[in-house]
Design a protein around this nucleic acid. Sequence first.
DNA 1: ATGGCGTCCGTAAACGTTTACGATTTCAAC
DNA 2: GTTGAAATCGTAAACGTTTACGGACGCCAT
Lengths: 345, 345
Amino acid sequence: MSIRDLARHLNISIGTVSRALNGKSDVNAETRERVFLAAKELGYVPNQSGRSLRQGTTNTIGFMIESSIETADNGGSFFMPVFEGVQSVFRRHQLDLVALLCGTDEDPGAYLNRIVGRRFVDGLIISATMRNDPRIALLLERKIPFVTLGRSNIGGQYPWIDLDFEGVAATAVTRLLNFGHREIAIGVPASDINLGYIFVEGYKRALSDHGIGFDPGLVFPASGNEEGGYQVASAMLSQKRMPTAVILVNENMAIGLYRRFYEAGIHPGRDVAVIGFRESTQSRFLSPTLTCFRISLRDLGIKLAEALLSTMPAFMGNYPQDSIELVWPMELVPGESDHLCMEPS
Amino acid sequence: MSIRDLARHLNISIGTVSRALNGKSDVNAETRERVFLAAKELGYVPNQSGRSLRQGTTNTIGFMIESSIETADNGGSFFMPVFEGVQSVFRRHQLDLVALLCGTDEDPGAYLNRIVGRRFVDGLIISATMRNDPRIALLLERKIPFVTLGRSNIGGQYPWIDLDFEGVAATAVTRLLNFGHREIAIGVPASDINLGYIFVEGYKRALSDHGIGFDPGLVFPASGNEEGGYQVASAMLSQKRMPTAVILVNENMAIGLYRRFYEAGIHPGRDVAVIGFRESTQSRFLSPTLTCFRISLRDLGIKLAEALLSTMPAFMGNYPQDSIELVWPMELVPGESDHLCMEPS
DNA sequence: ATGGCGTCCGTAAACGTTTACGATTTCAAC
DNA sequence: GTTGAAATCGTAAACGTTTACGGACGCCAT
């Protein structure tokens, strides 16, 4: 069922059929009608390879998601809504969105190289940005439109959107300081992912803004799952003076942290303050409920899509041209886990 | 950088270049060497559209994942490892795997129709199988190779793999009966997804095997997240005689269930027995740790991939031909949540 | 009658591959 | 020296589209 069959069936040339289906102007209204009718009747759908080959564009966008240890456990609840938002925009432009999950045993750079080499996608959304991400250089050089979810420290002209980890860290620190805490720990991802650095930056800045010195011993690197939270709690317990508060970069860590503290007879929200990230169904049902930060993930996805479209030649007209560099705000959702005031010592 | 450029650069014909790269036999070893070298040097990667058009095959497989309410919250931790397993097999055959996430506001049937119409993939893995899944009929009719993760009740010749929910339900029921429980509740997904039916089937069968009558009032439909677990607990509490045990089909529900019971002053693992599904990092760090069932998700993915390959003409030689209909076993992992014995009343 | 213009449609080239087929060379065997 | 087979390579067609170009036709103004 190719366009040739359709043309034969209608007794017109394939050129006219193509023009009719693609909404070109130089085709009779009645002819167009007949073409559309016959196409629906015979179930004709244009072959993607054919049109890709001709017009050098695939009409698909790739969303590259890491399936690393860090994201494996909470990846779904984070990426699914983002993906939804992205997709809702692309659907309006007849663009298909596919998720590219790079396996843990494959180098992301090599994987990406294969993808762009094959001309598999017209554009890319990249997540889990590293500090010096080789993928960015590759895409810039190959001139593939892309947008990153997460800042990098690589220069160049490309849009990015990042969560406001610095703001989150600052808000959390200020809140805890106001509650009287002075020794505030943070649990950050142990990997090279950029958010860790930014998080620590915000933490440091907020402390110094309040005239508190930075103690490197209060920064606990750990993996971003329950196991990591458990280890952070263990590390806190083994300090000679246990910190009275802790900020986590991942809400799954909170479960492990809670567990460890319960084992030690310490009640989060009563004996130690916990602020987590990110708000989810989970955070509302933990005991105590977790004070954390809310993101509108769907809106984030929509913005990502728009940022990408604004760099794609075929769509640049519809979207503002100024390159997007956006720090995505988050809103604190108070829970029960940090409701304790300290006497300033 | 097309094959033509590469051929010009080497002063040989494009046919020879193609044959060299594709490992055909009628090409000189030294020539092949030169071709590979030049390809690597110039960064040549064959254009996918071109080869797809010519050989009618795209070398990509689609993994269709629902982003429905049910799977949104725990979808990541479930699908990522499966995906990894699938990918590890396909990589060996030069097949690219893409995840197709059907948006909640889009009909899965229509979405699939577009995908197969465009000849976007050579084969498909379908998850979240419905009882009467229209996608299966479509794929059978179009003769697209596919495998489903989850049984359907549609006949026909296609491979499927499903988790052994019946076995899980039976094991859980038997275990709880041995602990002396007689009123065992279950929380099952409220949607039309097939696993719910199978789960209830296993539950019923295990009860009747032990001569216990089936009480429909002990089946609590709910969504598969924390909210759902909370509601199940509420419903249990409002019974005139509260069930002494509960089986959950989703481990995220356990968190909500725990929460609701704590609010009511009831301790899971002491006052009420809980068995959940599926084992995860989470289940080991809850308090009490959750008795649940373990799956080897990566192996499941590998088996899915092999099942699909066995139905694809290009690979049928390498894989056994007998159609695969597999019930995937799961292993009970005892936790603290069901360690309580009842005096038989 | 001629020219010009607008509408509609057919023709054919092009996109980048793969592959059937035939051409050329080499080499051994008769 | 002729033949045949094997090895190696070039040629060209084909896959299904889109699109630049030009042709046919009708209409109106000159």
